[in-house]
Nucleic acid binder design. Structure first.
Lengths: 241, 241
DNA sequence: ATTAACACGTGAAAC
DNA sequence: TGTTTCACGTGTTAA
């Protein structure tokens, strides 16, 4: 918009030989390579010379030096940015030829995932409540987890405590091929809450969340049918006293 | 190097009025704003016209259209890249005015940290060995953790099992203001290994690692002095049988 | 007045 | 072929 690309003058004044032998293009006949110098000659003859054109060589020198500095600084800036992009290329699952935009898209996605995972792993509420509860959440909230291909689930189970609850839980996770990343378990007044962060295999889809949910539900029902009365009585007695 | 910026011809042919009123600079006297058009006039008169200059207007049109497409595509590319950079700006602890290079530097650092944290949280070896062990590692390996300001430690304690080991451990972590992100505990043959991923407060320095190490050491010694003989005998008996 | 950062238009090369 | 991506030099603007 507000640009002119009228810098051939400076290219000429700089005596930058490299640009003189740039192959002509766009049907301009040879020796169009010298055209950039001709611009200057032409305008010099077309417009009357003013005194500054003779006496301001120091001005020209300074402008020239400034332009050179500018050029080099800009190159350094580009290199700085690109070096960081290269580092990111090594940090992500992508080859060195993925273009900048796609690379940055991957980076955005990855940072979001990692943020989410660590925050979910960190924030656990383990104080058991008085009501039975089962919650199973997916970390990736539905969209495909491109990170390392694994879905992360957060499962919370709050129920009466019993001695073989943990082994049963472990059995469920094993049968569903879920790997436990973090488990936090607390018991209070005969009740327990177990919060699990589990990673699914790559072959799992988001639907696995339902298998886990159902398994935990049956576990809870099993728990209630067999041991409920005994524990309940003990808890009630404790509350009465 | 291999560039000429000799595109005034196309600016002129395109009739792009915007560039005509660009303020002159570098001491070129007015009406230098028209200089870019003069380049074309000048070169047209200096070099003999060939037939193509009259008959190839369709060529010119095509080249012009191509140039316009190119220009717009490049603009779209820039916008795509910059939009991703903006997304990253919102994802990281930095304002919207941090420059590209610094932003990307932060991104590199953040991705490295998060990778390291999640991998350390994931990779735990909990099978207890027959020899007593204490290891305390720092996640950030010495450099400042710019992530959310917290240092992450990984502590592993392998020793004889005893009933009040966990409460003692919890007491230690509480007194050192360390928050447990993940704990994995396994017992086998009367021995136990506890692997803890703990996060230090922001006011902790990397030196806190020594306090934790010493506390665990004293815990292990306490364990050995009181309960060792009894457990050892039981274990030895088991091994003999 | 320097310096640094940005968007732009362009030529070249990949595909 | 045309489409896409890149590096470059430049003009401009802000601290």
């Amino acid at each position: 918009m507000q640009q002119m690309e009228n810098s051939e003058l400076y290219q000429f004044l700089a005596g930058n030989g490299a640009s003189f032998f740039t192959p002509a293009s766009y049907g301009m006949p040879p020796p169009s390579a010298a055209a950039s110098t001709m611009h200057s000659f032409c305008s010099s003859s077309y417009y009357p010379l003013d005194s500054s054109e003779i006496t301001d060589t120091p001005h020209q020198d300074r402008a020239l030096a400034a332009l050179k500095n500018h050029k080099e600084a800009e190159k350094r800036r580009r290199e700085r940015i690109n070096s960081h992009l290269d580092k990111l290329r090594t940090l992500l699952p992508c080859n060195s030829k993925t273009d900048k935009a796609s690379l940055l898209a991957k980076v955005v996605q990855r940072v979001r995932e990692l943020k989410q995972q660590t925050s979910q792993i960190t924030e656990l509420e383990t104080i058991p409540s008085e009501t039975d509860e089962i919650t199973v959440l997916s970390t990736s909230s539905g969209d495909y987890d491109g990170g390392d291909g694994r879905l992360i689930f957060k499962a919370s189970l709050c129920c009466e405590d019993r001695s073989d609850l943990i082994p049963d839980l472990i059995e469920i996770l094993k049968s569903l091929h879920l790997k436990t990343l973090k488990a936090e378990m607390a018991t209070l007044g005969g009740r327990t809450r177990n919060v699990l962060i589990v990673a699914a295999d790559k072959d799992h889809s988001i639907e696995s969340i339902h298998f886990l949910q159902n398994a935990l539900k049956s576990l809870l029902e099993r728990s209630n049918s067999s041991e409920r009365s005994k524990r309940r009585r003990a808890l009630d007695r404790k509350l009465i006293v």
